[in-house]
Structures are given as C-alpha cells and as structure tokens.
C-alpha cells in the first residue's frame, strides 16, 4: 500500500532537488511499479512541468528528457534509425502500450531495476546520465552511485555514433520482465556486449580480442562463452543462475551473428 501525504509539481530543478533530499520524499517517474512498494511517501515530487518530456537532437547527441515516456522513446524516428530498431525491440516486451505511455525513461533508469531492458539498451548506446548536481555520468558511474545520493535525473544523452547493434532478451512470457537482457554492439572496430537482468543490473563486456578475426560462428560462440564466464549470475523466481549463464552465452552469440548479418 502506497500512501502519499503531499504532491508538489516542482517549479525548478533546484526546488525538486531540495525536496528530494528528505528521505521519505520521492521523485515521481511514470509511477510504474510504484504500487508494488509498500511505503509512506511524504512528498511526491513531480517533474512534469519542467519541460523534460522532449527528445532534442543536437549535432552530436540525442538528449532524452527524464520525463519522456518509454512509448515516445521507442517511437522516435531518429533514435530508431540510430539504433536500427533496437530501442523498440528492447521495449516491446514491457507490459503493454499503456504502461509504456506512463513509464518514463528517467524513472526506468533512476530506479536501477535489476531487470531493466531500458538500462541494457542505454548502456549499449553508450548513453550518459545527466544529474542535476553530479553532472554527466556514464551509465556505469551512475549505477555505482550510492542510493543515498539523492540527485535529480534530468536527461539521458545518447551520442550519435555510427554503430551496429542487436538487442535480444529472454522472457518466460512475452511481456514478463526479462530473465536475461543482451545487446551486442559493434563500433569502430570494437565489439562489446551488455548483459543484464542476471538478475543484477546490466554490465558491459568487451570482446577482449575474441572477435579480432571477425565475427564467425566460432568466434561468436567464443564471445558468448567468454561473457557467460565473466558475468555474475543469480537466481530468483524466474530462473536459476545456471540457466541464465547458458542463455547469456546463446544470446550473445546470436546477437553477434545478427550483427554480422546486418552489416552484410
């Protein structure tokens, strides 16, 4: 049961930041999964009036406001082109259209869910997180921040870099949260994988030279094996660690091979 004593639409990031410093206050994202929590919130801080629901394009980046809905994120033409459809692929299994209309990119990142498709795809896109106070951080730096550091997530910055990317996930049912998420990215001669929902948060795994000779059935398999060996897997109600390890090897291999297909 979630209770909220006060609701405030912040007039500025400064106001939101100041309010957010109290432990029982909370910044609202899309409110998805918020109901799952049993907590008494003092003040719910809404960023909806701060113009953070826009996706802006600059010379070098896409700047995705924290309040941009997952649905708007998946439907954005420029981002779709940039990610070769991988963003839409990564989000299509998140419950349903209505959920994704409410859920926000900022909320999904800030919550640091272990099961996040959003985190995985953003890491694959080498996105940066812009916090009001702490400034611009990489996704890994953000993930490592202590939760006690109560900053405001302003936007996500996705660099416009030429890359090939393939996103795959394993789910017990089509719209359940993932058992495993995986993206493989090829950029400027480098290839790396992002694997998440282990059920720990996503992490990046470079190919470490395994793919130096190019992507073949054998090297892709080796890459999958390498990631599966390096990543730390755990168990929860959706599957055990051993299963996740096996599937990680498969998804990484398949995604790598798919990249090769894409690149022709």
């Amino acid at each position: 049961m979630l209770t909220i004593r006060e609701y405030v639409r912040a007039k500025s990031l400064e106001e939101a930041y100041a309010l957010a410093q109290k432990r029982n206050n909370v910044v609202l994202g899309g409110m998805g999964w918020l109901n799952l929590q049993k907590r008494n919130v003092g003040t719910a801080i809404d960023l909806c009036d701060l113009g953070l629901d826009a996706i802006e394009e600059t010379e070098t980046d896409y700047r995705v406001g924290a309040m941009v809905s997952l649905r708007a994120f998946e439907q954005h033409q420029g981002l779709q082109t940039l990610s070769q459809g991988a963003i839409a692929e990564s989000l299509k299994g998140i419950v349903g259209v209505q959920f994704r209309n409410s859920a926000t990119v900022g909320g999904s990142v800030y919550a640091r869910f272990g099961f996040s498709d959003v985190t995985t795809i953003l890491m694959a896109l080498e996105a940066k997180v812009e916090l009001y106070k702490a400034g611009v951080l990489t996704m890994e730096e953000f993930a490592a921040l202590p939760r006690t550091q109560r900053d405001i997530l302003v936007r996500i910055i996705i660099p416009k870099v030429r890359r090939s990317i393939c996103y795959l996930s394993q789910r017990n049912t089509k719209t359940d949260i993932p058992v495993l998420t995986c993206a493989v990215v090829h950029r400027e001669g480098e290839t790396f994988a992002v694997v998440g929902a282990c059920p720990r948060p996503a992490a990046i795994y470079p190919d470490g030279g395994v793919l130096a000779e190019g992507i073949t059935e054998e090297t892709a398999r080796a890459f999958g094996g390498k990631v599966a060996a390096e990543a730390v897997f755990g168990s929860n109600s959706r599957s055990g660690a051993d299963y996740r390890r096996k599937v990680a090897a498969v998804l990484v291999r398949r995604a790598a091979l798919a990249l090769k297909e894409q690149e022709g």
Partner: peptide, 11 residues
C-alpha cells in the same frame, strides 16, 4: 492510453 491505476489524479 494510460493506466489510471498507476497515475495520480494530481498528475
């Protein structure tokens, strides 16, 4: 379309 069960009336 949104889920009204996960949206504050205030919003």
């Amino acid at each position: 379309p949104i889920l009204s069960c996960a949206t504050l009336a205030a919003r």
